[in-house]
């Protein structure tokens, strides 16, 4: 609806009527970020555990994840998006963006999670095993809670990073905040105000994450 509106009012100034359009785009940024961060974190934790537990995983999985961590996200997005049509499965920008962001997030979280597991001292794990806990009980009730606390600050950094990096999915044509702002800037020629508003939207999305994890961190302090 907003798209048609914007073509009709060519080169008109920024108005309050554009806010819903931006809000919808912010919703899309939020959607793709939440999906990528949550699913990516689950995979990241599993990968981190594999990296920790297995020499082979460190060699093979480790190098694969290194690729995803080091190749610029925008290149990954374009490669992936343009690769699938060649195979005969064209992907929606949203789906392609989600998949790439999930893999990217999981590659970042894997290292963080591995660090979290390593933060649990070996003697403590011997202690829990000596109580008769199985490997998985030890993981679930001792390693996970202690490791999660240890990795929280670094994980927050990853999450905020992915939220901002999701802007790159705009290159695939997915209507999220950055792309919406570009559309509006082209129409209104008022980059300043629009970028300020978009910046405020990003801030409004990030702020709760930072606030929430800071709260958690405080509550999780050992005392």
């Amino acid at each position: 609806m907003s798209e048609t509106a914007s073509t009709i009012q060519f080169f008109t100034g920024f108005s309050l009527n554009d806010l819903p359009f931006l809000a919808e785009a912010a919703g899309n940024t939020l959607l793709i970020s939440v999906i990528s961060i949550s699913i990516g974190s689950v995979f990241g934790c599993l990968f981190g555990w594999a990296l920790y537990a297995s020499k082979y995983a460190r060699i093979f999985l480790g190098s694969i994840l290194d690729v995803f961590r080091s190749v610029p996200l925008i290149i990954q997005l374009l490669l992936f998006f343009n690769f699938f049509p060649i195979l005969g499965f064209p992907l929606e920008p949203f789906a392609a963006g989600c998949i790439v962001l999930i893999v990217y997030t999981s590659a970042l979280v894997a290292q963080v999670a591995r660090g979290g597991i390593e933060a649990v001292p070996e003697p403590m794990r011997r202690a829990s095993r000596s109580l008769g806990m199985s490997y998985f009980q030890d993981m679930r009730y001792v390693v996970w809670p202690i490791g999660a606390r240890a990795m929280l600050p670094a994980w927050t950094g990853v999450a905020l990073g992915v939220l901002k990096d999701s802007a790159l999915v705009s290159v695939l044509g997915y209507l999220e905040l950055l792309r919406a702002s570009q559309i509006l800037i082209t129409r209104t020629q008022e980059p300043f105000i629009i970028l300020a508003i978009v910046g405020a939207f990003y801030f409004a999305l990030s702020y709760p994450i930072g606030k929430l994890t800071a709260k958690l961190e405080q509550r999780w302090q050992y005392d």
Binding site: P121, P123, M124, R126, A127, S128, V142, P145, I146, R149, W220, Y222
Partner: peptide, 10 residues
Amino acid sequence: VFQQWNSFPH
């Protein structure tokens, strides 16, 4: 019981 007491801090 070990030299290090290994209490679960959480």
